[in-house]
């Protein structure tokens, strides 16, 4: 019998220092806050973190992971004005930053999950963020070569999940979660609702269970107000 549900204490067993991790969410919406707490508890450090931002502020989620000095490098599109802890550590030279256009970061992750090592995009051609990257002209337009992102670990928040790992999401809490779930060796999901196998309409499943390794049932309610 396949059952991917584990206790939260076991969710990050085997995660090593120096791992590359993907964290879903856009601001606090769809951010797997309780899993991040558990990763802080587990203790992995020197992490390269790929996310849209560098923390929504407050003492939770990505901000908390950074506050505990677990992150060595942030790859994101928009660190965010509320990411004060990140800004402090970045200024002090304690954490590196790679800024990537939001669509490019999404596509690099999708490509990583789909077995595509690199792709061309017009985004960032002729700009600072495209500097030093190989380019190619197709049909008169210059494109920049971007490498896929593959990670050791993904932290995902979903709405409904069954024991096979089939997932649905809630509203704009979906954001990066489905593509990040595809792109990691170990994908760990927190679900608000644990449902029986067969309860989810196959037509409405957004992430099929094959992308999911471990799940934790955490009915935490709404994202924090911001």
């Amino acid at each position: 019998m396949i059952d991917k549900f584990v206790a939260i204490a076991d969710a990050f067993e085997g995660v090593a220092d120096g791992s590359t991790i993907l964290i879903g969410g856009f601001g606090a919406s769809g951010e797997p806050t309780q899993l991040i707490d558990a990763l802080v508890e587990q203790g992995a450090k020197d992490l390269t973190m790929v996310a849209n931002g560098a923390g929504a502020g407050g003492d939770f989620g990505i901000s908390r992971l950074i506050e505990h000095k677990r992150v060595r490098k942030v790859i994101c599109s928009f660190p965010g004005r509320k990411a004060l802890v990140f800004a402090e550590q970045h200024k002090a030279g304690e954490v590196e930053l790679e800024i990537v256009p939001q669509g490019t970061i999404a596509e690099r992750i999708r490509a990583g999950g789909a077995g595509i090592p690199a792709f061309y995009t017009a985004t960032s051609a002729g700009t600072l963020l495209g500097e030093g990257k190989p380019t190619e002209v197709f049909d008169g337009v210059t494109y920049v070569l971007e490498r896929a992102i593959k990670a050791d670990l993904a932290l995902i928040e979903a709405w409904n999940g069954d024991r096979w790992g089939n997932l649905t999401y809630r509203s704009t809490g979906r954001n990066f979660n489905p593509i990040m779930a595809m792109a990691a060796e170990l994908t760990v999901v927190q679900v608000q609702h644990k449902v029986e196998l067969g309860d989810l309409d196959p037509e409405t499943i957004i992430t099929p269970g094959v992308f999911v390794n471990r799940m934790v049932h955490i009915p935490h309610g709404n994202p924090p107000k911001f």
Binding site: S77, P79, A87, H90, K91, I99, Q102, T104, T127
Partner: peptide, 15 residues
């Protein structure tokens, strides 16, 4: 800037 932020601006502008 110590931490510039591009968000989706480049993707929207080219696309």
């Amino acid at each position: 800037e110590s931490a510039p932020a591009v968000g989706g601006a480049m993707d929207l502008a080219v696309g």
